[in-house]
Design a protein around this nucleic acid. Structure first.
Length: 570
RNA sequence: CGGGGUGUAGCUCAGGUGGUAGAGCGUCGGCUUUGGGAGCCGAAGGUCGCGGGUUCAAGUCCCGCCACCCCGACCA
């Protein structure tokens, strides 16, 4: 490809709307263009990358025995009504009507459709197991699209679905997919951790997430370097700590005017936050008040709280509700003089803390040196604290590491969550009708492009790993008005093409510095610089990943690059 | 959905107290230059997000709407 003819235009300045490095660089280097919030066009160079990612995924899926097909974007509402998700999926579903008023949605995921397809085709255990997959555009009307390709409303995803006759076979399919995922992320050169995850809205019995560490992710992962345990932080259990051994001091009432936050209180009373009881009032289903108590240095994990409450329909109480129910204001909620109808949950972190600071349920007053048994009785203990760095590993007790990351893949052992309501049954060898056991396996293809940039970039631009680079080699002719240079560059370009290298030849009438900067930004893994050294029969070969440079005789350089590329792709 | 912010040239931005719209970069033409986003000369390019209002006069003041970005909750 000649760059002078190629639809690849870079930006000189950082795009104002982008924050995340991947978002910024993909826009700046001309890979994507924004059309609307969370909706992007993928330009030729970007599409080359995306197709390479797709093909790596496709190859490994095929290798695992899965079969590719293509489902639809436009899904009829009836299928979604069968599983109840037409109502429960909520406003994230893009809904529309056809000219006859029939309802459809733009598929955000395809469990319903695939189950419908399979039930129409499969009747017998002889047809099982089977795993089907597709690579397809999906639509989700996200509450908050952000960070470019990281969370879009329209995006490309690979989704696979397994169908098995029994639990054991289903588990085999699931494990098989785990291995395929492992191979995929290795080939993509992504550093990814597999973490146990909650099954969430999709439902099912087992689930794992594949998470790439980057600060721009939505997932928080806790992992143990000692035993290898890793899980989404929201499902990592935290036990009661050991009882503190501390002399109990006499309880005292202290005037704390306008001291509302834990921080202020800690400062005011010269007491560490871990000695303060934090009390937060929630309203469940808009009506049932639940008081959540947790140690002052801890945060509530609302995902854990949801699990404890058994509903997602809860929210923080408003100032008025706190006033009406407790006769106090936020910041002065405590455990004394509570009305009868309030449910109280104690987080494990509060167990055994001595000489606590507790609010009175009366503005501007706190008690200090409050002690269990002597001054109050514990209530129901639950686990609702956010996991933090250094918390004990639930498997081996070693301190956990906690990092944020981007969820690139998510696999679920679904069981009969979809096959049962949709009546996807088969007949087993004894003639009995049974629901098919399903699994589903997603990989965010467009998101992977962003994740790779997150993990492979520097201040100058992107550093594509060779297997996913838009071009493997760029040839830069530094002076287009010097025939000796253009002829050499031309010759090398043709040789590279003939030898099967994906090459872009920068034949634009631009200055040397301009071409260097562009090549760095776009991120080609290898670069041949055709410049002054041509007089000595040499050109310079540069490797983007490491910055290494070599002067190589013109006749040898293409073979040399070819070798290096082959090595990278192994 | 709650909170904050921004919308002026292709891009990044400037335009006190209202008075005919600017810069840098990019683009086009010309000359010069060619190993890290070159220099000089010239030119083109704008319903100032949209609608309404106040005013002799609105990019600027008022009201409404829209779009986009950021934080939070939620999600791949």
């Amino acid at each position: 490809m000649r760059w002078s003819r190629y639809f690849l235009y870079t930006l000189k300045e950082d795009p104002a709307e982008a924050q995340a490095p991947s978002h910024k660089l993909l826009l700046k280097a001309g890979f994507i263009k924004q059309v609307s919030a969370g909706i992007y066009e993928v330009l030729p160079a970007g599409w080359r990358v995306l197709r390479k990612i797709e093909n790596i995924v496709r190859k490994e899926m095929d290798r695992s025995g899965a079969q590719e097909l293509l489902l639809t974007v436009l899904n009829p509402a009836e299928l979604w009504k069968e599983t109840g998700r037409w109502d429960t999926y909520g406003s994230e579903l893009f809904r529309l009507k056809d000219r006859n008023g029939r309802e459809y949605c733009l598929g955000p995921t395809h469990e319903e459709e695939i189950t419908d397809l399979v039930r129409k085709v499969i009747n017998s255990y002889r047809q099982l197991p089977v795993t089907l997959y597709q690579i397809q555009v999906k639509f989700r009307d996200e509450k908050r699209p952000r960070f470019g390709l990281i969370r879009g409303r329209e995006f490309i995803m690979k989704d696979a679905y397994s169908f098995d006759a029994d639990e054991f076979s289903a588990t085999m399919s699931y494990e098989n997919m785990k291995f395929a995922y492992d191979r995929i992320f290795k080939k993509l050169r992504l550093k990814v951790i597999m973490a146990e995850a909650s099954v969430g809205q999709i439902g099912g019995t087992q689930s794992h997430e594949f998470i790439a560490f980057t600060p721009y992710g939505e997932a928080k992962v806790g992992y143990c370097e000692n035993c290898g345990y890793a899980a989404n932080a929201e499902i990592i259990p935290l036990q009661k700590p050991k009882e503190e051994e501390e002399e109990e001091k006499p309880m005292e009432k202290v005037h704390t005017p306008k001291v509302k936050t834990i921080e202020e209180l800690s400062e005011f009373l010269k007491v560490p936050p871990s000695k303060i009881m934090k009390a937060v009032l929630y309203m469940v289903k808009d009506s049932q008040p639940v008081l959540v108590l947790i140690r002052g240095d801890r945060e509530i994990d609302e995902n854990k709280l949801e699990a404890v409450l058994g509903t997602e329909d809860f929210r923080l109480a408003t100032d008025e509700e706190v006033q009406n129910l407790l006769g106090t204001s936020k910041g002065f909620i405590g455990i004394f003089n509570l009305p009868e109808n309030i449910k109280v949950l104690w987080d494990n972190s509060l167990y055994g803390v001595k000489n606590l600071v507790v609010a009175l349920n009366q503005p501007d007053w706190h008690y200090i040196n409050v002690n269990p048994e002597r001054d109050f009785q514990y209530g129901e203990f639950v686990d609702i604290a956010q996991v933090e760095e250094g918390d004990p590993c639930p498997k081996c007790g070693s301190p956990l590491k906690v990092q944020t990351g981007l969820e690139l893949g998510h696999i679920f052992l679904l069981g009969t969550r979809y096959s049962e309501p949709m009546k996807a049954y088969f007949t087993d060898p004894s003639g009995e009708e049974k629901p098919i056991i399903m699994g589903c396996y997603g990989i965010g293809i467009s998101r992977i492009m962003a994740a790779i940039v997150e993990q492979y970039h520097d201040e100058k631009g992107i550093k594509w790993p060779t297997p996913v680079a838009p071009f493997e080699l760029a040839i830069l002719c530094l002076n287009m008005s010097d025939p000796e240079l253009t002829q050499t560059a031309e010759k090398l370009y043709i040789e590279a093409e003939e030898k099967g290298i994906e090459v872009i030849y920068d034949d634009r009438e631009e200055s040397a510095g301009f071409k260097f900067a562009d090549a760095d930004l776009v991120g080609f893994p290898y670069r041949i610089v055709v410049g002054k050294k041509v007089k000595e029969g040499k050109v310079e070969l540069q490797k983007r990943a490491t910055g290494e440079r070599w002067d190589i005789p013109i006749e040898e350089v293409i073979d040399k690059v070819k070798e290096m590329i082959a090595e990278d792709k192994k």
